[in-house]
Amino acid sequence: MIINSKNNPIIPKIVRSIVKAVTEDVPEYCREQGRETNNAITQMRGDCINDNLRSMVIDPGVVDFVSFRRYIWEGRLIVDRANKTSYSITTKATLRGIPKKQRTSPHFLQSILYAENGGIQAPVKQTTLFKMSAFDDESLAADFNSIVGDLINPVEGYHHFVVAYEANKVDVTSISLEYLDKDFNVVESTSLNEYIAPNFASLTEDTDNRETSVQAPETAKSFLIIKEKSIRPKLRDIPEEA
């Protein structure tokens, strides 16, 4: 069921949105502000990712944003109408921690996986994971509806994928596409590391089917190395994102 990322133009654009936030947007903010501490950027990476998704990925009516709120935190889901898929983005550490934490109300991803991936089962079950029976079907269904409203109808066959990444202060070190069952067991997983340093020109092409041929110059790699050395000064400590 896992989407072939090589045939889906959305996937490299999502990766580019994450990479740009980590390697360009947040470091630029820190350079411009020049503050003694950078506590404000704990959530800024996610905000920058969402801004980049809006400009790089979203195409209203084709690829949509679903906006939702958890207390004071605002989240976004990506919905690919043509392929009947939705995506969320999180760090790998956060994804690993979700099913282990005891909760009084569902995490939004628990409700989404229940509604969209509830009909699948992973080949290997993790018996130590948090038991979803803590929330009954009605609670999970109601929470899912509060998140998506009428923007996603799971009866239409939607499936959810998690784009999970690892990053240090200024680099994305690993990223993958995770297809999980409702208990957070891995059905399939594929690496997206090949898109961390993609052909940037191809990501700006029109999303229609016009045949164009755009190739990155042979010097692209050396340009990135020079750019990294020349414009990336030492930064004050940036908190790692949970």
Rank of each mutant, 00 (worst) to 15 (best):
V66R: 10
V79A: 13
N117Y: 13
G118A: 13
H107G: 05
P106T: 07
I78K: 07
E74D: 03
K101P: 00
F68V: 10
L109N: 09
S67K: 14
F68H: 08
S111E: 09
G75N: 07
H107R: 06
R69C: 03
I89D: 02
I89N: 05
S67M: 10
T94I: 02
P106Y: 13
E116Q: 15
L95V: 07
T85M: 09
A93V: 08
I78G: 07
S86P: 00
D80A: 06
I98N: 12
T90P: 00
D80F: 03
R96W: 03
I112E: 04
L109W: 10
Y87M: 02
T85S: 08
P106W: 14
V66F: 10
S111D: 06
L109Q: 15
S111F: 14
V79T: 07
S67L: 12
R81K: 11
Y71E: 15
S86F: 03
G75M: 02
G75S: 03
S111V: 10
L77G: 07
K84A: 07
R103H: 01
V79M: 03
Q110R: 14
P99F: 07
A82C: 01
G118H: 07
Q121G: 15
G97H: 08
A82E: 06
S105M: 08
N83A: 13
R69E: 05
Q102H: 10
P106C: 10
R69A: 04
T91Y: 02
R76C: 07
V79C: 06
N83S: 12
K101W: 01
S67Q: 10
I112M: 14
L109M: 15
E116D: 12
Y114E: 13
W73K: 04
T104A: 11
G119D: 14
T90W: 01
N83P: 00
W73V: 05
T94K: 13
V79K: 14
S111G: 11
K92H: 01
R69D: 02
A115F: 06
A115K: 14
D80R: 08
R69F: 00
A115Y: 08
R70T: 03
H107V: 06
R70K: 05
Q121W: 11
L77V: 04
T85V: 07
T94L: 13
I89E: 04
Q102A: 12
R70E: 04
D80G: 07
Y114R: 15
K92L: 06
K84T: 03
R70Q: 07
Q102P: 00
P99V: 11
S88Q: 02
I120A: 10
G119R: 11
Q121Y: 08
K101V: 11
Y71N: 15
K101E: 05
T94Q: 13
A115S: 11
F68P: 02
S105Q: 12
I72N: 08
D80C: 05
I72V: 07
Q121K: 15
W73R: 11
H107W: 14
Q110T: 14
R81Q: 01
Y87R: 04
R96D: 12
W73L: 05
F108L: 04
K101G: 00
V66W: 07
T91L: 05
S111M: 10
H107S: 12
G119T: 14
G75K: 09
S67R: 12
F108S: 08
R81P: 00
L77R: 08
P99L: 12
